[in-house]
Design a protein around this nucleic acid. Structure first.
Lengths: 185, 185
DNA sequence: GCTATGAATGTAATAGTATAACATGTCAAG
DNA sequence: CTTGACATGTTATACTATTACATTCATAGC
């Protein structure tokens, strides 16, 4: 049973990052969220496991809200707005004010368990926490699918440019907007 | 007279992008805004000239609001929030509702005359409009200085990664946060 | 000239995103 | 058991951005 979670999620999942939402996008309407279909339940629990391990080894406090927030991001497997996350949390008995979501999301981001996608004002679970990686995001402008790609070479090029300017990079956001394979004409 | 505009601007200029604003940052408190001091009046009028030329050659309508918006960005030579721009425009007799600023800024961005810096929710004039270029921004987290650097190699690396994923990049935001030369310990 | 047309602007109202500030609770070290 | 650090809950508010509609302006065609 290779793709258990690959059909349209229940009614529980409204939208990635709100606005332009052609749900009928050829390949992206399939909620498999990277650009290729895959066993999401697997990669999800996998990532959660690594998050637990990372928290244990670093002494991070992956409290209930934080862990649940991460699970929510992993389950939906797409970029969620802070208020989307908040609604879910509130429905499950956690606080229902914005700081609840923002604090959890900030924590996750700070420790590399999630990423913030500024173009979408949204957050997404990191698919390989713990590994040193400079994430870059490919965002489909039609279906809003988001894919985190390895960007070591990109980051290297960026570091070179920065060094030339005497600038020291601490964090970088690399976000590309365009068309995913499924949405391309 | 090499640096005509390099002393703290009048009281007219409140702030780049609001929040964390140590004005006493060693080198960045000097309003020379790239990381090195330079003749800002020159590069500013230079950029404006190129914008005019570009508009003429492409048949763009660089109307008063739009041109003035660009001037405002160039004058301040830093990243300005939409509402910063709006306040200035309103003070000069243009409309005082958000769409006035957003429309002008969107126009400028669309035609490569300005860039949007998502990390700061701010906008900055493009320093070399017309030239095909993939801009990358270096943002100092202490003084908020923003520098646009040439990022052709960065963009090339990103394109490679995207192609591998079957993704077609149309636009990209590359933003690095860190320490500028003047703010480095 | 005169008007039809589309683009640009003005304006009001509202939606969406994020943070400050303070109170309360929890847990572990001493 | 107390202290102190961190985490959470909650209120209020600030900041960013868009929708919708009315009006004005420029231009091309008659």
């Amino acid at each position: 049973m290779p793709h258990p979670a690959t059909k349209p999620q229940p009614a529980t999942m409204p939208h990635p990052a709100t606005k332009p939402q052609p749900e009928d996008c050829p390949g992206c309407a399939t909620p498999a969220l990277a650009f290729a279909p895959h066993d999401h339940a697997h990669c999800s629990s996998d990532a959660l496991g690594r998050a637990d391990a990372l928290a244990a080894s670093l002494g991070l406090r992956l409290t209930p809200v934080r862990r649940r927030t991460l699970e929510i991001l992993l389950e939906s497997h797409r970029a969620l707005g802070a208020y989307d996350v908040l609604n879910r949390l509130a429905a499950e008995g956690f606080g229902n004010q914005p700081p609840v979501a923002y604090r959890a999301l900030d924590f996750l981001e700070e420790h590399g368990l999630a990423h913030r996608i500024r173009r979408l004002n949204a957050f997404t679970a990191c698919m390989h926490p713990g590994e040193a990686h400079a994430p870059a995001f490919l965002i489909c402008r039609l279906c809003n699918a988001v894919s985190e790609t390895a960007a070591a070479p990109v980051r290297a090029a960026l570091d070179t440019a920065a060094t030339t300017a005497g600038f020291t990079i601490e964090r970088a956001n690399i976000e590309a907007l365009g068309l995913c394979p499924a949405c391309r004409p």
